[in-house]
């Protein structure tokens, strides 16, 4: 009881540790990882498959925790993030660092010991990439920060495939580039019509730094190669017509919406309908595209 006689803050709740892992971001990461695994031409034992997905989720959680640890000052300046455990003062910064590092090391070790070394190596690289390259180095330095963040979010498809096969092929690399090229139009469409306080916090987001016109052109500039990469697996005969036709139709719609965004001159955020349509469709796009890929590969294999 003597330890309680000294004035000290309350310990963080377990929910605060859970919040550090950014569970909503984790769902997309788990989905793409699972699709990478299921698209692989090799059967993976359910226990090993579950372990691999768990490791991907824990690795993503580690990224979230370390991101919140490093950006606590920035989070405190923005309405959307000011209630997070660190800026709200519900948790000690050191605890967040220990939690993030512990989770990251554990996820890589478990992946290496239970699944295989290649998937563990890619998982480690993706965590380091997200934390060091994206969070610490480039996020506050370039308006292309979303592109770099997109690369970090694209790794799980590679990890899922590597967990099943123990090697990498062309298809998971194409899946990586699909997510990588999908991220900028998805995020910038949102950034155009949502009022953010990134500028006040000193983060150079594209619409703030380069303006709406340049951002709209960049949305289209990324949507075009994304559509090409999405159809490539069919063109290279890595998938059948189920995926091919789905990818073709979805990508044509995506590019069509991106063209509308590119041509729009609307300055009032409340009236940015093309941007809203593209953002909503982009979420559906990735889920249906990857779902069709898995369905196609399962029928093919």
């Amino acid at each position: 009881m003597s330890s309680l006689t000294v004035a000290q803050p309350l310990p963080a709740e377990w929910r605060d540790f859970l919040a550090l892992t950014k569970p909503r971001v984790m769902t997309l990461v788990v989905f793409t990882g699972l699709c990478g695994m299921l698209a692989a031409p090799v059967h993976i034992h359910p226990v090993i498959g579950f372990t691999a997905i768990l490791c991907i989720a824990l690795g993503a959680g580690a990224c979230g925790a370390l991101n919140m640890w490093y950006e606590a000052d920035l989070d405190a300046q923005m309405k959307r993030t000011a209630r997070r455990p660190l800026p709200a003062g519900r948790m000690d910064r050191q605890a967040a660092l220990h939690f993030g590092v512990g989770l990251g090391v554990f996820s890589v070790l478990l992946m290496g010991l239970a699944v295989n070394l290649l998937s563990a190596a890619i998982l480690a690289a993706s965590i380091l990439f997200y934390v060091v390259i994206y969070t610490v180095w480039l996020k506050r330095r370039t308006p292309q920060n979303i592109v770099i963040g997109g690369a970090a979010g694209a790794f799980p498809a590679l990890i899922g495939w590597a967990a099943a096969c123990g090697r990498l092929d062309l298809l998971p690399v194409l899946m990586f580039f699909m997510v990588f090229l999908w991220t900028p139009p998805h995020f910038w469409a949102l950034a155009l019509f949502v009022e953010t306080d990134y500028a006040a916090a000193g983060v150079p987001m594209m619409p703030v730094v380069a303006g709406a016109r340049t951002t709209r052109i960049q949305v289209f500039a990324y949507a075009l190669p994304m559509a090409v990469v999405a159809v490539l697996p069919w063109g290279l005969k890595l998938t059948g017509a189920i995926y091919g036709l789905t990818a073709l139709i979805l990508s044509l719609v995506f590019v069509g919406l991106a063209v509308q965004v590119g041509l729009s001159k609307q300055g009032d955020q409340a009236l940015m309908k093309p941007e809203r349509r593209l953002f909503r469709f982009s979420i559906l796009y990735l889920f249906v595209l990857f779902g069709a890929l898995v369905a196609d590969r399962m029928l093919l294999v």
């Binding site: 310990p11 963080a12 709740e13 377990w14």
Partner: peptide, 9 residues
């Protein structure tokens, strides 16, 4: 409250 949080964790 301190004990409740400790217990939950």
């Amino acid at each position: 409250e301190y004990r409740r949080r400790q217990k939950a964790r």
